[in-house]
């Protein structure tokens, strides 16, 4: 079904250019031998070198990975349950609770969680960040799982039940494998959302719990060195690897 429409293609090409040009510039400047992001001076690896000696950056990266792994794992479990529940039952409260955090601007969740943690007298740090990240990740996993549930043929599970499978067996042997691409897509989304989140983290972060986005924010704000370009380039490469890997392992996961 190809319709040749030059104008359409031209605008689309423009949109792709718009999407990629800025990232391309960041990558190029990460190799520029000048402290100022102005004119091109010469090729260098020194910003990468500096980056790997920057302990704050490394520890922020470690924090980000820990938070993203834990919150993606927990949110995947909770989100899968929610997604299945929303598909199977006519519920009133749960869909609202699942969708609201997605619909609310991030800043609202950030400040309300800040007030909440302060009220509990909880010290802000890795734990508060992780709890917050789980909250906004659940919805995305739930939606991804719910979408997949709709695609599953109900007669399969019904047949299994008729043949005498227990609900658990039925879930384990039929629903779960069929659901896997949805769960994996949700988990992946949760992981990237968590590792990418700046706004909510900004409000609930405490001492020594700086994450990569927070670190980047302060670097961008102060804008002292092109190390920012280097870390950005590395992050792009990392996500690229992550996506390719997922696409290879689970060809269906990205589409849903």
């Amino acid at each position: 079904m190809t319709r040749k429409n030059r104008l359409l293609k031209l605008v689309a090409l423009g949109a792709y250019l718009f999407l990629y040009l800025p990232l391309f510039i960041v990558i190029v400047y990460s190799f520029n031998d000048s402290k100022l992001n102005a004119e091109w001076v010469g090729f260098t690896f020194k910003w990468y070198d500096k980056l790997f000696q920057n302990r704050e950056m490394l520890s922020a990266a470690a924090n980000s990975l820990i938070i993203a792994t834990v919150s993606a794992a927990v949110a995947t479990v909770l989100g899968t349950l929610a997604g299945m529940a929303m598909h199977q039952y006519r519920l009133k409260l749960l869909p609202g609770l699942v969708l609201a955090p997605i619909a609310m601007p991030d800043i609202l969740m950030g400040v309300s969680l800040l007030l909440f943690f302060i009220m509990l007298n909880m010290s802000l740090g890795l734990i508060s960040i992780t709890l917050a990240h789980i909250t906004f990740c659940i919805g995305f996993v739930a939606l991804s799982v719910q979408a997949r549930m709709t695609a599953i043929d109900r007669s399969l599970t019904e047949a299994a039940r008729d043949l005498g499978a227990t609900p658990w067996q039925c879930f384990r042997k039929i629903t779960l494998p069929l659901l896997a691409p949805g769960i994996i897509a949700g988990a992946l989304m949760a992981f990237t959302l968590s590792i990418d989140d700046f706004v909510i983290t900004f409000f609930v972060a405490g001492v020594g719990s700086s994450t990569l986005p927070l670190q980047i924010y302060s670097m961008v704000k102060i804008a002292v060195t092109p190390e920012v370009n280097a870390i950005s380039t590395l992050l792009m490469v990392l996500t690229l690897i992550l996506i390719t890997l997922t696409a290879r392992l689970y060809p269906g996961a990205l589409r849903s």
Binding site: L23, P213, A223, M236
Partner: peptide, 15 residues
Amino acid sequence: PFWSNFLVRIYAWMI
């Protein structure tokens, strides 16, 4: 591009 960090994308425009 949406998977590269959001601040990185802003930063690109700052340049």
